[in-house]
């Protein structure tokens, strides 16, 4: 009888000791990286203004097809945006400036001195349309929980490393079967549809220079049309978070493999590299149109 009790006692003791060990081994902190990133995303999106420098790049089998880089200044309070972009596809490149001020959107191509001005007539309607859902704290909390549950154990793949002075870095790389099958299927379909979208390859659609005053036809990026075995191969995220929980630097990469109609294999990598600074200390630039060449364009054309 004593032997039995000793066995039960020992089993319980060792078992509970292991449970306590797991708690000390920071199992509760699972997804510490995930939580840090989530907080940072919330803080960063809540900032009322910021300046960002971004580089978007699309490579096919290591060769760059499309590169967009530019600066963006945005202020939610002033409802203003200003920025510039340089779009390069191989040899061809195009400069673009854009502003959003006083309810008008202004585009200017680097190769002309005409400002194309679009006035939004239904600004109030659109603002109302945006007010549902995401702004409501209850809906937001519900969504957050849903996302948490969907992310599930993927949280364990998010690594957090501390830097100096409260700065943190978050890294996540998902490869092959680590990527949830549903995400892979939906993502692959989206990528495939995007690559096969009509206006991407039909020159007639791109030659319409009237809308933003830029000849985009020169910029055909020659993206491959993947039709078979489209698969998301790798997803990676690197984010640097400062002591105030703002994401100051972020790199997101997505690698997609697949075959085109001719059966040639492609590996497309899409990457976005975004630097953020002057958080809550940014005023978007404005342009004074007095005395400048302008061209009125219809706002509804922009929404197409």
């Amino acid at each position: 009888m004593k032997k039995k009790l000793a066995m039960v006692g020992a089993g319980l003791t060792i078992g509970s000791a292991l449970l306590v060990t797991s708690a000390f081994a920071d199992i509760g902190g699972a997804g510490g990286g995930y939580e840090a990133y989530k907080t940072a995303v919330k803080t960063t999106t809540a900032a009322s203004n910021a300046t960002q420098h971004y580089v978007l790049s699309v490579k096919d089998n290591g060769q760059e097809l499309l590169n967009v880089n530019g600066t963006l200044k945005e202020s939610k309070a002033a409802r203003g945006v200003s920025g510039n972009a340089e779009i390069a596809t191989g040899a061809a490149s195009e400069q673009l400036e854009f502003y959003h001020q006083d309810g008008t959107t202004i585009f200017k191509s680097g190769s002309s001195d005409t400002y194309n001005v679009a006035t939004e007539t239904d600004e109030s309607n659109r603002a109302e349309g945006h007010d549902w859902g995401p702004e409501d704290p209850a809906v937001q909390q519900g969504l957050e929980k849903l996302v948490d549950a969907l992310v599930g154990n993927l949280k364990n793949n998010v690594n957090l490393s501390g830097g100096t002075g409260g700065a943190q870095a978050v890294d996540m790389t998902l490869k092959g079967s680590q990527i949830p099958a549903t995400f892979n299927v939906i993502g692959s379909l989206v990528v495939k549809e995007a690559l096969n979208a009509e206006n991407l390859h039909q020159d007639s659609g791109m030659k319409d220079t009237g809308v933003v005053g830029i000849d985009l036809s020169r910029l055909d990026a020659k993206l491959p049309r993947l039709t078979q075995d489209v698969n998301i191969d790798e997803v990676s995220l690197h984010a640097e978070i400062d002591a105030n929980h703002f994401i100051v630097h972020q790199i997101v990469e997505l690698a997609v493999t697949g075959k085109d109609e001719a059966g040639a294999a492609h590996r497309l990598t899409v990457s976005a590299d975004i630097d953020t600074w002057d958080v809550n200390a940014t005023t978007p630039d404005t342009v004074d149109l007095a005395g400048k060449k302008t061209n009125k364009i219809e706002a509804d054309k922009l929404q197409d």
Binding site: V8, G11, G15, L18, L19, A25, A30
Partner: peptide
């Protein structure tokens, strides 16, 4: 992720032992 694996391993083993005993 060695630390994570160890933590989950002890949690699972601990639960198993408590249920078993």
């Amino acid at each position: 992720p060695a630390g994570r694996l160890f933590a989950i391993f002890s949690l699972l083993l601990g639960c198993g032992m408590v249920f078993y005993t």
